[in-house]
């Protein structure tokens, strides 16, 4: 186990050190002490290393992650795992706005609640939230899966493209072009796998699925009120 103290050695050295790890590094376990809400902690990683952040972080923790597993033992500020490509990010606490924004791949697990715009513009990432999510989540979401074990706020999935949304609790309101869809066996399979990987004990059958009605995919003047 390698230990890195952000308070002592600074952000620049932290990211430089973690980014320098290659695919076959034998320093695979890292502990990051004293994050103290710093922004851009453990960003741009690109190796199969495990990083545990001992405390809460500011904006963009684990941004653009590839391959690495980043676990935050605290809460995270806006844009955790933004534009993640692969790997896993686990947040033990809550997440602020835009969690997993524009993520192209990988798995983001939030054990607490996520704020508004979670999964905005997601492009293939899988996001599992054990608690509730705020308003405008999965806005313009293009691909990937958003799983919510609690409740969803207003305008879920507004202007959704092809992402799948699974919610166990209530949905305050659906956004434009987002509709409830039938849960077919293949969706149960996808959901089961995601819950397993997120280490969350929940029954896939208890969830409802939401997706795009695809009515806004091509402009139609009779839909102009929805734009």
């Amino acid at each position: 186990m390698q230990t890195f103290d952000v308070a002592e050695n600074g952000l620049r050295e932290l990211n430089q050190t973690l980014q320098a790890q290659s695919v076959d590094t034998n320093q695979t376990n890292w502990e990051v002490k004293n994050p103290k809400g710093s922004h851009a902690i453990a960003v741009g990683l690109d190796a199969p290393i495990e990083v545990t952040v001992k405390g809460s972080t500011g904006y963009y923790c684990a941004g653009m992650n590839q391959q690495a597993t980043v676990r935050v033992e605290g809460s995270v500020g806006p844009g955790v795992a933004e534009n993640m490509m692969s790997g896993t990010v686990v947040v033990e606490g809550d997440a602020s706005q835009y969690a997993g924004a524009t993520g192209h791949g990988g798995l983001l697990v939030i054990k607490g609640n996520a704020s508004s715009r979670c999964g905005i513009s997601m492009k293939g990432i899988d996001i599992v939230v054990q608690g509730n999510i705020g308003h405008m989540c999965a806005f313009m979401a293009q691909a990937g899966n958003l799983v919510v074990c609690g409740d969803a706020g207003d305008a879920l999935g507004d202007s959704l493209y092809e992402a799948r949304l699974f919610v166990r609790g209530s949905v305050k309101s659906l956004g434009a072009d987002c509709v409830e869809k039938e849960m077919r066996p293949e969706h149960i399979e996808i959901l089961k796998d995601l819950l397993d990987r997120a280490e969350i004990d929940a029954k896939p059958e208890d969830f409802k699925r939401y997706g795009s009605a695809r009515n806004l995919y091509n402009f139609d003047v009779d839909n102009s009120a929805a734009y």
Binding site: G44, Y59, P78, I120
Partner: peptide, 26 residues
Amino acid sequence: ACRHPDWTGPDDLEIKILELREITNW
């Protein structure tokens, strides 16, 4: 989209620039 999905306003922009610099090693 007309706005960035993960920041609004000049204070956020400063943090976004920091993140991009950290990812590209300044």
